[in-house]
Design a binder for these strands. Sequence first.
RNA 1: GCCCGGGUGGCGAAAUGGUAGACGCUGGGGACUUAAAAUCCCCUGCCUGAAAAGGCAUGUGGGUUCGAGCCCCACCCCGGGCACCA
Length: 856
Amino acid sequence: MATKSTDYNFHEIEPHWQSFWEENRSFRATNESAKPKYYVLDMFPYPSGAGLHIGHPEGYTATDIIARYKRAKGFNVLHPIGWDAFGLPAEQHAVKTGTHPATNTAANIVNFKRQIKALGFSYDWERELATTDADYFRWTQWIFLQLFQRGLAYVDERPVWWCPELRTVLANEEIVDGKSEVGGFPVERRNLRQWVLRITAYAERLLADLKDVDWPESTKRMQEAWIGRSEGAEILFELENKALGPLKIFTTRPDTLFGCSYMVLAPEHPLVETLTTPDNQSAVDAYKKKAAAKSDLERTDLAKDKSGVFSGAFAINPANGAHVPIWIADYVLMGYGTGAIMAVPAHDERDFEFAQRYSLPIPQVIASPEGETKLPYTGDGTLINSPGYDGMAWPDAKKKITADLAARDVGKPTVNYKLRDWLFSRQRYWGEPFPIVWVSEGDYAKVKAAGTRALPVEAVTFASGGQKFFALPLPAGALPLELPEVQSYLPSGNGESPLANVTAWLEIWFNNETGAAVPASQPRPAGDAWLRARRETNTMPQWAGSCWYYLRFLDPQNPGAFASPEALKYWGVPDLYVGGAEHAVLHLLYARFWHKVLFDLGVVPQAEPFKKLFHQGIILGEDGEKMSKSRGNVVNPDTIIASHGTDTLRLYLMFLGPLEAMKPWSMKQIEGVHRFLQKVWRECIAADGGVNAKISATAIEPAELTKLLHETIKKVGDDIEALRFNTAISQMMIFSNALQKTPVVSRASMLAFVQLLAPFAPHLAEDLWERLGEKPSVQHAPWPKFDPARLTATELKLVFQVDGKHRGDQLVRVGLTREEALALAKANPRVAPHFEGKAIRRIVFVPGKILNIVTQ
RNA sequence: GCCCGGGUGGCGAAAUGGUAGACGCUGGGGACUUAAAAUCCCCUGCCUGAAAAGGCAUGUGGGUUCGAGCCCCACCCCGGGCACCA
């Protein structure tokens, strides 16, 4: 039943239809359907305490329009939503208040859900999930175990960013300008035991497969740059002290080998200690100490001011036997390549700067084609001063020299990536626990010998207190491994998570066959399967849950698998994925990595998770600045829904400008959009609440109106497909303006128009649809078709130009010839004077468009 | 420094190489009304002009073309990303 109001009462209409959809389960997607499928996905939100931001409904409205449009086009549409619910804010709140983060998270979800429901999105709520649900994260843990068993997860003691204020470790990407991204607190280096995922093993494929996805170019470029592939060679330099073994360096320019005048080791390079001569020991030690104390910010800031220290040692250039000094400098990073370089100051800006500062020789080995060369020279050229290679173009020399070194066994072609392995653990409470226990070498050997467990080829171990521990996975049947209750959510402060304080959970007798556990304080249960074990205390980062949620939506209640093979086959991956550009690298790269691992396991049928990706733009405050509490320019969706209704909000968000553009909010403009909806209401509904008298089933409406309707059907459909919602709305406004001027309109035309509006303003459309005499719901009606024959006009406007300038125009019949057009131009009093008496040099005639008379 | 976007009226913006400014907002004038709101109609890039009309206009300067907001070159400004990765 439609509402009874006589005017456009969105306060009544919107909740009414929202309940209707809920009661009728209108947007449920079934996994059994003969229809073609369409999967449209939003980046699921983190349910923060602050509630929905206006940026959420922007992207969500866009996907909702697509979802509703595709349903009308006959697709079985999957449009789900869930909650990326693990996260630092809930944990910090727990630390402050002592309440369990789950309590706070649940309350935030309730609020988010209320807000999202008020927006009228056509989500299939029966597929709702949260990454914090045990039924969900058991599969996050399961996927982790697959990575573990394939040797893609390992443990490493490594320097990580520790934030004393947050009492936690942060990933590189969580640090901005040397401070924590959350809160802006200072960070420092600490060595801690970490889980690391071997994403670098997939670097090549993550790079290569970018060509197969329909993503914004800028995002692809960002991922390319992040992966940072470069081709070069590893070259071995003999040291003067041959006992120390060769020094291995990486270079992308082996062709400049003859220009090497010194070597540089990163301060953390293992050879620094052994090759430094006694005379230089104290200077080197001092330098190492200074470099270690520098934060990333300082290292970057000091980039223009290179520093280093001479080690006293010399290396021998394998090309010409030259003895070159070895320096220690922090402009060389231990984390990339081999942590050592050959310096070629004549052809590398950084080496040049360093050589100048320390008065090192700068021999030139590449000549520019112009002859005269200003150093450093990094452009194209040919080799000089390189006996045996002089005159060769540098790319050829690069290949030749690399091959020659390889033949002598002192070098080989190598590819390096900037991409580092993914630091995957956090010393926090509120995250997925690792399904791993640590056991002794002896127990591990027994388990391995039994051959009943899937273990990595190379055992994952770590050493502590003179003892070596071995990582043993929980059996899949023991998942999920849930978080224990804790006394305090405060991190232990020594770098371990609060879980380290829960002794009964931590120190256990572990049943290797079932995964069962008994506190170690109790007697060891009977049976060979019971081992003494200590649980892993790290938890997973927030990225883990968002790496694969798009797959769980396919089959969210499945108790036996993360999704059934049938569901994976039917739904596949999202056809469209919409979310913010801030996830261009991390989330989207991590998810691609996991997906490829699942693909290699044979459990998902395609190599890429997100075929088509789109980023919605940021909405600025009315003052044109970024929305923020401190500026007081934040727009709350609840407020707008109360004052104008969600149909107006949705329409306005889409009318603002191109979806991908950054654009300012405007309260004035929203009035215009609201007026449009009121106008549509008035064109359908009379003042008494009945159907507008100008609408009738038998009405013969003006032909231009019918033509405009067909144009509108075409444009709105095309624009929705291309995510150009702003111009689709413009076109509907043009049609409504025409409606208002027409004395009569056929019921069929009005219904078609209501259908076009339905994806944008679904509540209003449902009400009008029923009031016009149709059965709900409008979404079940097939999308209107346009008749191409109706689009062709009999008359067109022909523009006359003289020398490219617009001088007049005239309605002409279709199919006018060049001669007829010229005759019209000559007869046109506005046009003719501009070329009369001049020699016509050329006539350009584009039928139906333009006649250009060129006289010069 | 490098890599991406983007610069169009008073404002948000439209424009397969073919009438620049659709649509919306704002502003002005008018109709309806006792009045107001709402609604409807007309005007609204800049300059000259009473008007008709003409000239100038898409960040700047060049170029290609019968014709450029759109293509090419150089530069300026704004936004985003990366930043000693050898």
